[in-house]
Write a protein that binds this DNA or RNA. Sequence first.
RNA 1: GUCCCGUUCGUCUAGCCAGGUCUAGGACACCGGGUUUUCAUCCCGGCAACAGGGGUUCGAAUCCCCUACGGGAUGCCA
Length: 454
Amino acid sequence: MSEVRVRFAPSPTGFFHIGSARTALFNWLYARHTGGRFILRIEDTDKERNTEEALRVLIDGMRWLGLDWDEGPEVGGDYGPYFQSERQKIYDEYLQRLVGAGRTYEKDGAIWFQLEGERYTEYDDYKKAEIEKVRAAPVVIDDAVRGRVERAEERDFVLVRADGSPVFHFVNVVDDIAMGITHVIRGEDHLSNTSKHVELFRALEVEPPIFAHIPLILKESGPGKMSKRDAGALIDNYEERGFLPAAVRNYIALLGWNPKDDREKLDIDEIIDLFDFPGINKGNARFDERKLSALNAEYLRELNLESFAFLVRPRLHLAGLVAEDVDEDYLQAVLRLCQPKARSLDDLAELCDYFFSDTYTMDAKQGEKLEKKGDPKALLGEILPLLEALDSFDAGSLQSMLEAHAVVKEQKIFAYFPALRYAVSGRAGGPDLLPLLAVLGSDRVLARIQAFIA
RNA sequence: GUCCCGUUCGUCUAGCCAGGUCUAGGACACCGGGUUUUCAUCCCGGCAACAGGGGUUCGAAUCCCCUACGGGAUGCCA
């Protein structure tokens, strides 16, 4: 059998949304699974959009998700050009074949495709008009996901607009033929269009590819499929918010596909290995950002400290917390404490700002709570001189010092913890206190306690 | 309106093709408990579904039909 050739054929609209990304991913996975080729073809026939910038969004999004293409923009290939705007000659050629076969006619300045079959007119309730229909033989496809699907096309359709530009259905089929596409993996919204496409394949005397129509991603709440405007729909948004591409990729792979066992967190090689049409669901899937976040948090926790620091540094810099030349040892010491607490990269700056700045906010509510339980200033007043006298400011020394003091006061060591934490961080939760103090260092800790007591 | 596709916990899904092992499994979310100085993590437990009706069968989540509901298509958009 010849090599598998699949394609992702987006139109650069300036958005790269999660549904497109999932279609791209499924095509990519199938190519990688079968050892075939993944082709990126740009359907940029709409001249009005800023294709340069829009293309960037698409390409950046693909790269971010790690979906590399074997043929297409920036990499070339033997079946180019890979922009529809540059393939006019090819469309003309194929159009001539249809004209030669007597399957076209002109009407209102446009070129139409003529179906074969008995013609009749009928009132169409949707069009609210009397229109010509054709009793064409039903097209039967053996869809790799949905099985046998039969549908008859009943109206002629436009191939080339009055302004001379070819329409989607036509160029799509021509390009798939010219590029030797063997499998068309696309959203279910194209299932009804497939009868048009198969009619064209037949008229051009080409065996149609194998179709695999994948379920749609429905919006998180409300009716309908996900669109650009829905929350969480855009891929670049996840990049901005500090989601890990591996997590996003893993999550969208699970939207409409699953490995048939109970595993959900899978690395990409496993997904490639397991991915195939029988694992694809028929029913549409509803997007759930909480599940994505949970998966992302899981990936985040598994990162080694160096990688984690690498990802976090620019975000802290952006938040104005660290300089470009931040001390790497200090940064890593902080992150060693904060990484286990992080649920996303996005909230990390908030989580650990007090390590880098003295202008962190004091949580007033927690302050009140603390007051009710005891006198934090008095407690801190007791241990401040001891802290000042400490010659080694590490977790072990802090612990022995506090324990010794607690014994004298007939207290538990933990009696001092909440006040200490609040004074140095302004909040009630966070990393383990003693290591936190050690990393923060005696200068900062003492200054903050003094300020708190004053 | 017509045509096409679908329907298992709130959500993603396993099971369906090859009917019995399903008192329907896992995950997210939620709720409780444990661990922890705290928060997060982690561990334990709980909640919760075969859309409805008819068949076929000794037996149906699984096969067939109908209905309902959901989604899509019906553009000189892609």
